[in-house]
């Protein structure tokens, strides 16, 4: 697969990963990103995926993927066993995002998290004018059947990173077309214009 064909958030994530490192993708789906990283970045690729179908697809690709749950199974990994722990579009579906993030920064030296930004202007206007929980193209579920139980905004995520004393190595916001909203914009602008946020976190004190 060429990098053009890769989902835009995956492309950004893959830019952050150094070649030849050890990577854990939490909620790796059918293994698209992991397979790309294994092929193009020669990483030692590992995954956790909750769906059987996803795990089977990953195993068929030759990936080492465990059927499991971000909320419960990260605790099983020893400290520092990965260079990067990736969580793509999954943190909002975890029961305890804070503990998941803590675990990611315990088992990996770097954490890369992408998530839908609930502070995007379209969502704000939807709630403001309709008075109902926003349903958008990217977030098509209704409030009662959504797996996304912990939505946050880009600013919320920055606050959580601060609370965990994580260092933000790099952050990006992507617009609806998957293009970066613009580097060096203030948080409030990203929080309005970004459909999703992608954060690269490291432990305070660690130098990457």
């Amino acid at each position: 697969m060429s990098s053009e064909a890769l989902r835009s958030d995956y492309r950004l994530v893959s830019e952050m990963v150094r070649p030849g490192t050890r990577v854990l993708d939490v909620g790796c789906g059918d293994g698209e990103l992991l397979a790309f990283l294994a092929q193009h970045k020669q990483v030692d690729a590992r995954g956790i995926e909750i769906s059987r179908g996803g795990v089977a697809a990953c195993v068929a690709k030759g990936l080492a993927v465990i059927q499991g749950d971000a909320d419960t199974d990260l605790a099983d990994y020893p400290d520092d066993c990965f260079d990067y722990v990736i969580l793509s579009q999954t943190i909002q579906a975890t029961r305890n995002p804070k503990i998941v993030l803590e675990q990611m920064l315990r088992i990996g030296r770097n954490a890369i998290v992408s998530f839908p930004n609930f502070g995007h202007w379209r969502i704000r206007t939807h709630l403001m004018f309709n008075g109902r929980m926003p349903v958008t193209e990217n977030l098509p579920d209704t409030w009662y059947n959504t797996p996304n139980i912990h939505f946050c905004t880009i600013r919320d995520f920055v606050a959580l990173a601060d609370e965990l004393q994580a260092r933000i190595v790099r952050a990006d916001a992507l617009d609806a077309a998957g293009k970066p909203v613009g580097v060096k914009m203030p948080w409030w602008f990203w929080n309005m214009m970004g459909e999703q946020g992608i954060f690269w976190l490291a432990r305070q004190g660690d130098r990457t």
């Binding site: 030692d44 590992r46 059987r52 795990v55 089977a56 990953c58 195993v59 990936l63 080492a64 993927v65 465990i66 059927q67 499991g68 099983d76 990994y77 020893p78 066993c81």
Partner: peptide
Amino acid sequence: LNAAGASVSFVEIE
């Protein structure tokens, strides 16, 4: 196996 850093896949079949 994870603790040993081994390459491991696991699936529980219904």
